Simulated scan of single mutants.
Amino acid sequence: MTILFDLDGTLIDSTEAILESFHNSYRIFGLPSPKDADIKSLIGHPLDVMYSSLGVEEKIVWDMVDAYKEHYREISREKTILLPYAKEAIELASQHARVGIVTTKTGKYSKILMEHFNVMQHFEILVGREDVTNPKPHPEPIQKAIDFLSVSKDDCWMIGDTRMDLISAKNAGVKSVAVVSEYEAVEELKKHTDIIKTNALEAVRTILDRKI
Score class of each variant (00 low, 15 high):
residue 3 I to T: 13
residue 4 L to H: 04
residue 6 D to K: 02
residue 6 D to P: 00
residue 6 D to C: 00
residue 7 L to N: 01
residue 10 T to R: 01
residue 10 T to S: 00
residue 10 T to Q: 00
residue 11 L to G: 01
residue 13 D to C: 01
residue 16 E to C: 07
residue 19 L to E: 14
residue 21 S to F: 14
residue 22 F to T: 09
residue 24 N to Y: 15
residue 26 Y to V: 15
residue 26 Y to S: 15
residue 27 R to S: 12
residue 27 R to Q: 13
residue 28 I to G: 05
residue 28 I to V: 12
residue 28 I to F: 11
residue 31 L to P: 03
residue 32 P to E: 14
residue 33 S to L: 09
residue 34 P to V: 10
residue 36 D to T: 14
residue 38 D to F: 04
residue 38 D to V: 10
residue 41 S to N: 15
residue 42 L to S: 03
residue 44 G to P: 13
residue 44 G to L: 10
residue 46 P to L: 08
residue 46 P to V: 02
residue 49 V to L: 13
residue 50 M to E: 10
residue 51 Y to A: 08
residue 51 Y to R: 01
residue 54 L to M: 03
residue 57 E to F: 09
residue 57 E to A: 15
residue 57 E to C: 11
residue 58 E to D: 14
residue 61 V to E: 13
residue 62 W to A: 07
residue 64 M to T: 06
residue 65 V to R: 06
residue 68 Y to N: 02
residue 70 E to D: 15
residue 70 E to W: 14
residue 71 H to M: 11
residue 71 H to Y: 12
residue 71 H to Q: 09
residue 73 R to K: 15
residue 73 R to N: 12
residue 74 E to C: 08
residue 75 I to K: 03
residue 75 I to Y: 01
residue 77 R to P: 02
residue 79 K to T: 04
residue 81 I to P: 00
residue 83 L to T: 07
residue 83 L to R: 00
residue 83 L to I: 06
residue 84 P to V: 07
residue 87 K to T: 08
residue 87 K to S: 08
residue 89 A to T: 05
residue 90 I to S: 04
residue 90 I to F: 00
residue 96 H to Y: 13
residue 97 A to Q: 08
residue 99 V to M: 10
residue 99 V to W: 00
residue 99 V to D: 09
residue 99 V to K: 04
residue 100 G to N: 06
residue 102 V to Y: 12
residue 103 T to L: 08
residue 107 G to R: 07
residue 108 K to N: 13
residue 109 Y to D: 09
residue 111 K to C: 13
residue 112 I to D: 10
residue 113 L to H: 02
residue 113 L to I: 10
residue 114 M to E: 06
residue 115 E to M: 06
residue 115 E to F: 04
residue 115 E to P: 04
residue 115 E to T: 05
residue 115 E to I: 02
residue 117 F to I: 05
residue 118 N to S: 10
residue 120 M to T: 02
residue 121 Q to I: 08
residue 121 Q to Y: 09
residue 124 E to H: 06
residue 125 I to R: 15
residue 125 I to H: 13
residue 127 V to Y: 11
residue 128 G to A: 06
residue 130 E to S: 11
residue 132 V to W: 09
residue 132 V to M: 07
residue 134 N to F: 14
residue 138 H to E: 11
residue 139 P to R: 02
residue 143 Q to D: 10
residue 145 A to Q: 00
residue 146 I to H: 04
residue 150 S to C: 03
residue 151 V to R: 08
residue 151 V to T: 15
residue 152 S to N: 09
residue 152 S to C: 09
residue 152 S to L: 09
residue 152 S to F: 07
residue 158 M to Q: 02
residue 158 M to D: 00
residue 159 I to S: 01
residue 159 I to C: 02
residue 160 G to V: 06
residue 163 R to M: 11
residue 164 M to Y: 14
residue 167 I to V: 14
residue 167 I to H: 10
residue 168 S to Q: 03
residue 168 S to H: 03
residue 168 S to G: 07
residue 169 A to Q: 05
residue 171 N to T: 13
residue 172 A to D: 00
residue 172 A to H: 12
residue 173 G to M: 08
residue 175 K to L: 07
residue 178 A to D: 01
residue 179 V to P: 01
residue 180 V to F: 05
residue 181 S to V: 01
residue 184 E to M: 15
residue 184 E to C: 15
residue 184 E to V: 05
residue 184 E to R: 05
residue 189 L to I: 07
residue 190 K to C: 08
residue 190 K to W: 07
residue 194 D to E: 15
residue 198 T to P: 09
residue 198 T to W: 13
residue 200 A to F: 02
residue 203 A to P: 04
residue 205 R to W: 04
residue 206 T to P: 12
residue 206 T to F: 13
residue 207 I to P: 09
residue 210 R to G: 15
